[in-house]
């Protein structure tokens, strides 16, 4: 099977610091990484290829430095990589991004061969929208499923297991399809030196600009994005009530806590539900 894995090259948000004086995020000097939630997606794709044969193509829409991210996934063992890069793609929201990714997958189908599965991470650490999987499925007209924890082929369909808030579900998904892999679902394999050497020798990274994709400039980047960020504000500290009580004895402590929670309109209902349904 031919599997495309989409990744995003993101600022490492754990290294983003908050400047309490100006009330803004300090992003300068923050290293970029492969979105950590994309690594389980790459791992699932590689496991499926290892089990059933075929190839894994890693794909991203990004400025050229994201090649490092593609090399990371190639280092894990992906076969090929595609970088979709063009100044015209800048400023894209998730609709415009998913359009370019879907068109990248269509071009892979035209030039390399039929794609059976597109795999994405559940969400990114820098924006957490969880949009791209569903949007790519919408552009391609493929079925899709989110929050996948593992997958295998059963009678020609992809059998996936996923977990919702309160249930575990198993689906058989007819291919081609899109799946998004749950956060921390699988431990990603390490990058291997032999794979890195192959990348150096064979340079299996294809670069496509918008000229190659042939997309109308009105459909990509900022112009192809219906959403606009009109304003950003910062909340350095969460307002809390900070009521501290020195109890007479443990029973007093317990009753005081419960009295507060039952008087508080934010928690009252949840407690009622827990105790009396």
């Amino acid at each position: 099977m031919r599997i495309v894995v989409g990744i995003k090259w993101v600022p490492n948000t754990q290294a983003v610091r908050f400047d309490p004086k100006t009330g803004t995020l300090i992003r300068t000097g923050v290293p970029a990484i492969v979105n950590p939630h994309d690594l389980p997606a790459a791992e699932l794709a590689l496991r499926l290829r290892d089990e059933y044969g075929g190839e894994v193509i890693v794909l991203t829409m990004a400025p050229p430095p994201a090649v490092q991210g593609l090399e990371h996934i190639l280092g894990m063992g992906a076969d090929k990589a595609v970088l979709l890069t063009d100044r015209a793609f800048a400023g894209a929201d998730t609709l415009a991004t998913s359009y370019v990714i879907a068109e990248g997958i269509r071009k892979i189908e035209r030039e390399i061969g039929k794609v059976d599965l597109a795999v994405f991470g559940q969400e990114t650490i820098d924006s957490s929208t969880a949009h791209i999987g569903a949007q790519v499925a919408s552009w391609l007209g493929w079925p899709y499923i989110y929050y996948v924890k593992n997958a295998k082929m059963v009678n020609g369909a992809l059998r996936v297991e996923r977990q919702l808030e309160n249930a575990v579900e198993t689906f058989d998904v007819g291919l081609p399809a899109v799946v998004s892999v749950a956060m921390k679902a699988l431990k990603a394999r390490p990058v291997r030196l032999s794979h890195k050497l192959r990348v150096k020798l064979e340079k299996p990274i294809i670069v496509w600009s918008n000229k190659d994709l042939g997309l109308d400039p009105r459909c990509v980047g900022l112009k192809g994005s219906p959403t606009i960020v009109s304003k950003v504000t910062y909340l350095p500290e969460v307002p809390r009530r900070k009521i501290v009580y020195k109890p007479k004895d443990p029973r007093d402590a317990a009753r005081w806590i419960l009295a507060q929670l039952f008087q508080d309109e934010k928690t009252r209902e949840a407690l009622h539900k827990a105790l009396w349904g």
């Binding site: 969460v238 009521i243 020195k246 109890p247 402590a253 009753r255 806590i257 507060q260």
Partner: peptide, 17 residues
């Protein structure tokens, strides 16, 4: 950083809760 705090031995307080 909490809304409601109580000072005391957790074991006794959680048992009472």
């Amino acid at each position: 950083q909490a809304d409601y705090g109580v000072i005391g031995d957790y074991k006794e307080i959680v048992e009472s809760l």
